[in-house]
Design a protein around this nucleic acid. Structure first.
Lengths: 144, 144
DNA sequence: GGTTGTTAGTTACATTTTCAACTATTACCA
DNA sequence: TGGTAATAGTTGAAAATGTAACTAACAACC
């Protein structure tokens, strides 16, 4: 009998994180999909732009941990729907600055309200202290 | 100034969970992909079978929170590589019992060792107490 | 027993994602 | 200055995923 048998994959952090992330995202996904036909990639780009105001696609890649082709296509679709605007950087025309249109901000505000509600439901499953520790731990694990 | 401005999506649990899950999964993904050319779906089916010994595809869907078509295709590929065997249920031939072959178990043991290592690296980012609370919270959030 | 409904699992097709190659622009440096 | 390297972002083809329709087997009710 060796020591390796002590390790149970049911306690493997990436597994637990994935299950929790999956389940807690699902019902919210139905909201942005149902209301605006948005994909998860688009929702993520949208709210990053709302939070940080003005970003390049590359900034979004880094903050949101998304591949650049994913971001590129999400930006295209959000632009088509007039949720965002692109403006090339004057100094370095490889960069494009992205900002939400007022229409994009309206959509964002609506979704944010739903997100807040959704978050409250999730937090009811936890104690105040658990929530604090959880947030801290998730932030720590998100540093690569 | 309304209350809604208090809610910052950077603290939205599904977002934090997703970031942590994504980052903590990435380096491990390179391992099963690099060593065995496996996809995440296949890895998940493999280790569920290793843990529970004998399951139907439906059991896996429920435990792993995966859609049945994902499971169906992962099972097909694992069978082609001779990592698992199917056996129809005698009583109810709609059910198929799945078990790992010895080859599948060997692969699993190898990956489990790597997972354990990986888990230890992740846990170094956290205190013992954080780990305990985190596990509890993730389990709570995984109840749908 | 036969009709209807349900369940486990697969398949076809559409959508999304990934990977690699590509363009356009700027940086570096001999 | 010119040539190579690096960077931001896009695109096309291949792979993976999601959706809905399907098959096969069983259940339930008349």
């Amino acid at each position: 009998m060796t020591q390796k048998d002590d390790f149970d994959l049911r306690e493997f952090l990436p597994y637990l994180l994935n299950q929790a992330a999956e389940i807690s995202s699902q019902s919210f996904q139905r909201i942005y999909k149902g209301r605006y036909g948005m994909l998860r990639t688009e929702w993520r780009v949208l709210f990053h732009l709302a939070i940080y105001e003005r970003m390049t696609a590359k900034d979004i890649c880094e903050k949101a941990i998304m591949h650049k082709t994913k971001v590129s296509r999400a930006v295209q679709r959000l632009e088509q729907r007039r949720y965002l605007q692109r403006k090339p950087d004057e100094k370095d025309r490889r960069h494009e600055w992205l900002t939400l249109t007022s229409q994009g901000r309206t959509v964002y505000e609506d979704l944010r309200a739903h997100a807040q509600q959704h978050d409250q439901v999730l937090m009811q499953k936890l104690s105040t202290e658990e929530i604090t520790v959880l947030r801290g731990a998730l932030n720590a694990l998100s540093q690569p």
